[in-house]
Each structure stands twice: as structure tokens, then as C-alpha cells.
């Protein structure tokens, strides 16, 4: 699939800020499932800082904006050719040992219900891949997709108790139950081309990857009950949502900020 992506984030500050430093993880991953063309990152009024590929294989770019400035726009534009690899992250170069992804963080901290879910869902699994599929299916069952039910800081345990959530909650819950079952798991941020019209929240998306012996990292999207295919564009990963955030920034002299995000993923027919 040939996907055209445009992603614009506008920060508006009540009082002009003195200075802004950002760390961006907004460049598509390099692996057999995707090929990137003419990718451009622009930060209005910004100076491009260091760029490097980290141990997880993500391209990180630092930007600084010298103030005073009341509005900053981060604009991403580019094309990605994608292929369906049934979720398998084939040909992705990374240096971090999978076992490093067995560590729990606050959003994925297991409670009794998550432990229960992991155990029940995993019972009878034939092999690690089967186990991963069962866990993902169980999370899809346990947490209904409902925007607005949760917020950015909701934990996996809270979302499970609520029985509702969005892709972030599904991913955190799957990561948690996978780690309980001994499978290294991580949070992935990216884009999703939605075939349904007018659902902007679908375009910026998140899912989980579980490490399966013999296959390597395999993506699972419990929010959509599937594995990532050619509609998905992968940006980067982390232990949880904050760790995998595509944009991190600290503003000096920070005042109240308003954020507007517009993401469009379109299929190019040519």
C-alpha cells in the first residue's frame, strides 16, 4: 500500500515561552514491511539538533526553538510504501536485548485481575505464538473500544477494571499480561490508515509488540483485533506509552498550553 501521511501538531501558549526543547520519534521504522520516501520534519522557528538511531532502532531527532514564541507547529509529511508481514517485524535492526522489555512500568504494573486474565487466557497455549494470540484476543474481549472512557494517565489495571478504553489502554493491558506470561512486550506508536471515513482518532495509533522466540517481535493490535498489516506505519517503541511517545518536549517559562493535532493517512492510488 502506498500511504501519504501528514501529521501536524500545533502548540499554542497563553504566554509566550522562552525556549522549547523537543525529542522527536517521528520517522518511520526501517524494516521489510515499510519503505519511506521524502520524509520531512519541520518545527516552526526551530533549530534541528542531534539526529541518531537509538538501540531500539528508532530514529530520534532533537529540536530546539528559541523564544519568545507563542505558537509552535510540528509538521510531518511523507510517503510510506507498506507490505503486510502478518505483524512480524522482519529485518528491523536493533540492539536492545528483548529481556529488557520484561520490566514493568507504572502504566503496565500488573494487579490481581491482570494476572488472572493472563493465566486464564494463556491456559492451553500450544506455543509462544499461540499464547501471544490468545492474550491479545483476551484483551480485546475484556476491554471494549470506547473513546473518552479513559484518559492519558489511565493504567492497564484501571482500564481492565473499567472494561473500556482506547488503543493506548488495550496496548498497556496486552503488554502487562504478556510480561506476566514471560513474553517480552512493548508499546508501539505509529499511524493507521482507516478505511472508514472521517475517523481522525484512528490515524494516530498505538499497538503492542510481543517477542516470540524464533519469530522475533510480532505486532498485535487488540483495539482492532488483528495484527498490523499494510495499513499500519510503525514509528517507534518503548516500555509504555510515555516511553514510546513520538513527541516529547519541555518548554521553559511554560504557561497553559493548547494542543491541536491533525493526522491524515491517505492511500495513493498511483
Amino acid at each position: 500500500m502506498k500511504l501519504q501521511i501528514s501529521h501536524e501538531t500545533v502548540y499554542r501558549y497563553e504566554q509566550p515561552i522562552r525556549n522549547l526543547v523537543q525529542s522527536l520519534r517521528l520517522t518511520p521504522s526501517v524494516f521489510e514491511g515499510q519503505k519511506t520516501h521524502d520524509w520531512q520534519i519541520q518545527v516552526s522557528g526551530g533549530v534541528r539538533g542531534p539526529g541518531f538511531r537509538d538501540g531500539a532502532g528508532d530514529w530520534i531527532e532533537g529540536w530546539t526553538v528559541r523564544g519568545p514564541v507563542a505558537e509552535v507547529t510540528v509538521r510531518i509529511e511523507g510517503r510510506v510504501d507498506t507490505r503486510d508481514l502478518a505483524g512480524v517485524l522482519r529485518g528491523h535492526r536493533e540492539a536492545i536485548h528483548p529481556m529488557s522489555y520484561l520490566r514493568d512500568t507504572a502504566p503496565t504494573e500488573p494487579d490481581a485481575a491482570l494476572q488472572d486474565l493472563s493465566r486464564t487466557a494463556g491456559t492451553g497455549a500450544r506455543d509462544p505464538l499461540d499464547l501471544a494470540h490468545r492474550l491479545s484476543a483476551a484483551v480485546s474481549e475484556a476491554i471494549a473500544f470506547r473513546p473518552g472512557a479513559t484518559e492519558a494517565r489511565t493504567t492497564a489495571a484501571e482500564a481492565l477494571a473499567l472494561g473500556e478504553g482506547v488503543c493506548q489502554d488495550h496496548s498497556h493491558a496486552l503488554i502487562s499480561v504478556a510480561r506476566i506470561a514471560g513474553l517480552p512486550a512493548r508499546y508501539v506508536s505509529g499511524y493507521l490508515h482507516s478505511t472508514r471515513d472521517g475517523e481522525a482518532h484512528d490515524a494516530a495509533h498505538a499497538w503492542a509488540e510481543l517477542h516470540v522466540e524464533g519469530l522475533g517481535w510480532v505486532g498485535f493490535d487488540p483495539a482492532n483485533r488483528c495484527c498490523p498489516d499494510e495499513r499500519y506505519v510503525r514509528l517507534g517503541s518503548g516500555l509504555d506509552a510515555p516511553d514510546a511517545a513520538p513527541i516529547r518536549g519541555v518548554a521553559m517559562g511554560s504557561s497553559a498550553e493548547r494542543l491541536d493535532v491533525a493526522v491524515h493517512v491517505q492511500e495513493l492510488t498511483q
Binding site: 537509538d54 538501540g55 536492545i96 536485548h97 529488557s100 520484561l102
Partner: peptide, 18 residues
């Protein structure tokens, strides 16, 4: 043992490879 290193709280995965 791998666990003692990779699951150690002081192991900083963000500097792996550098």
C-alpha cells in the same frame, strides 16, 4: 545470568548501542 543485567533497574536501555 541475562536477567540480572537486562531486568536490572539500573540497566539503561536508552543508551544501548552508544
Amino acid at each position: 545470568p541475562a536477567r540480572l543485567v537486562y531486568q536490572n533497574d539500573a540497566y539503561e536501555k536508552s543508551v544501548v548501542g552508544f
